[in-house]
């Protein structure tokens, strides 16, 4: 039953990603060309509203449904980790035109070939796990 809730939220997310066209390679290209406000509007309005929502959650000490604190652990500070990792991610995002959410949603949209991108992303994550101790963090 609990899992059904995650399935429903995930399904809604997939519909949002498709109907907003955020799954489109073209929209990502257009964003990095600064040719349209569309993607900036999506991310910008999400962040603006998200800041307010999380501030309200904290102000009123909102708990999750099982009574525990919300899962908002502060992230450990580092510059190289986020800057290098983020840049590598950005290179892939602009090349494949999809971040992880849209990779899944594109497959649902019938683009079966995107399983190649998914498999490669798994290989990338696996490789990171192997090299992690040798990388600057």
């Amino acid at each position: 039953m609990k899992y059904f809730a995650y399935l429903a939220i995930g399904t809604f997310f997939g519909i949002v990603m498709t109907k907003s066209q955020a799954i489109s390679w073209f929209r990502i290209y257009e964003m990095f060309q600064f040719d349209s406000f569309h993607m900036y509007g999506i991310i910008g309005s999400a962040v603006a509203l998200g800041v307010v929502l999380i501030a309200l959650f904290k102000k009123y000490n909102v708990k999750s449904v099982d009574g525990s604190d919300l899962a908002l652990q502060p992230k450990e500070m580092s510059i190289p980790r986020y800057l290098i990792g983020g840049t590598i991610f950005g290179l892939g995002w602009a090349m494949a035109g999809a971040c992880p959410g849209p990779i899944y949603t594109l497959i649902g949209n019938g683009y079966a070939v995107i399983v190649v991108v998914l498999a490669s992303a798994l290989l990338g994550t696996f490789t990171y796990g192997l090299l992690r101790t040798k990388l600057p963090h």
């Binding site: 992230k75 980790r81 986020y82 290098i84 990792g85 983020g86 840049t87 590598i88 991610f89 950005g90 290179l91 892939g92 995002w93 090349m95 494949a96 035109g97 999809a98 971040c99 992880p100 990779i103 190649v116 991108v117 998914l118 498999a119 490669s120 992303a121 798994l122 290989l123 990338g124 994550t125 696996f126 490789t127 990171y128 796990g129 990388l135």
Partner: peptide, 14 residues
Amino acid sequence: IGGFLIGFGARYAG
């Protein structure tokens, strides 16, 4: 390569 960079970079960046 695009997929690999996404998977590698996302985990590196956390």
